[in-house]
Amino acid sequence: MITNEHVEKFVEQARRYGKERWMLCSSGDLSWRIGNEMLVSGTGSWLRDLKKDKVAICRMMDRQCINGVKPSMEFDFHAGVYRNRQDVNVVLHFQSEFATAVACMKNKPTNFNVVAEIPCKLGRTIPILPSMRPGSSALAKAVVDAMVNHDAVLLASHGQVVCGRDFDDVFEKAAFFEFACRIIVLSGGNYDVLTEAEIDELEYYKFCRGGDM
């Protein structure tokens, strides 16, 4: 059962994300799975100064809100990710400056592995989804399907979604996603990416030798 302490922690973490300027005003949304229920930032709320009365508590089984707060319009893909990923407990949808600039490029990069942290933290590939109406069932389905096997997706002309096991995991993934996109934008497209052999070596170091990447 979700307690007042859970809500307070959720508010604290939402404000932590908001301070990073990863979303403007009411853009972006955050959710946290707790057992068979989930906390979701409410429609129109600003994560940087989220209040407890703007946090929706929803049941996972039937996706019904049980505290009278209307959840974010992107609630469906948050719930869908949790249904498919038992390893995921936090989902963040955001619009950070450089990653969103990449999302709006005509010629978007197909490889984001400019630094070792990307394949190590977010995976070797980051899917790019076509432009779809925010809050639509089509967008929700596309995000849910893409995140079955990925921890991050780029939404064309929209933003990004990352998921992870806890708040620190998601914070780290969002930070490195934005860092990689900053490199891509500031390089003017003139950048190198890690080779598959180099990524294989990183995987060996990380998983076989106990390295901390």
Score class of each variant (00 low, 15 high):
E8I: 06
V11I: 15
E12L: 10
R16D: 08
G18F: 02
R21N: 15
W22D: 05
W22I: 15
R33C: 00
G35C: 04
N36G: 13
E37S: 07
M38N: 08
V40I: 15
S41T: 13
S41F: 07
S41H: 02
G44A: 11
G44P: 13
S45I: 04
S45Y: 02
W46S: 08
W46Q: 11
R48T: 06
L50I: 11
K51N: 14
K52R: 14
D53S: 05
I57G: 00
I57M: 09
M61N: 15
M61I: 14
V69A: 03
S72P: 13
M73V: 15
E74T: 02
D76N: 06
A79G: 05
A79E: 06
G80V: 00
R83Y: 06
R85W: 04
R85S: 07
V90D: 01
V90N: 02
H93W: 04
A99W: 04
T100I: 15
N107A: 09
K108W: 03
P109E: 11
T110D: 12
T110L: 08
N111I: 00
F112A: 04
V114D: 05
V115A: 07
E117Q: 12
K121S: 05
L122P: 03
G123S: 04
R124M: 07
T125D: 12
I126N: 02
I128W: 04
L129Q: 07
L129S: 06
R133V: 14
P134Q: 13
S136K: 13
S137C: 02
A138W: 08
L139N: 00
L139C: 02
A146G: 09
A146F: 10
V148E: 12
H150W: 06
L155S: 00
A156P: 06
G159E: 01
Q160T: 14
V161W: 00
G164V: 01
F167I: 11
D168N: 11
D168S: 10
D169F: 03
F171W: 08
A174I: 07
A175F: 14
A175K: 12
F177N: 00
E178M: 09
E178G: 04
F179L: 11
C181G: 03
R182V: 04
I183T: 14
I183H: 10
I184C: 00
V185C: 12
S187D: 13
Y191W: 12
Y191V: 04
D192A: 13
V193Y: 07
L194N: 07
E196L: 13
E196I: 13
E196H: 13
A197L: 07
I199P: 00
E201T: 08
L202D: 02
L202F: 03
E203W: 06
Y204M: 12
C208I: 02
C208G: 01
G211M: 02
D212T: 10
M213C: 14
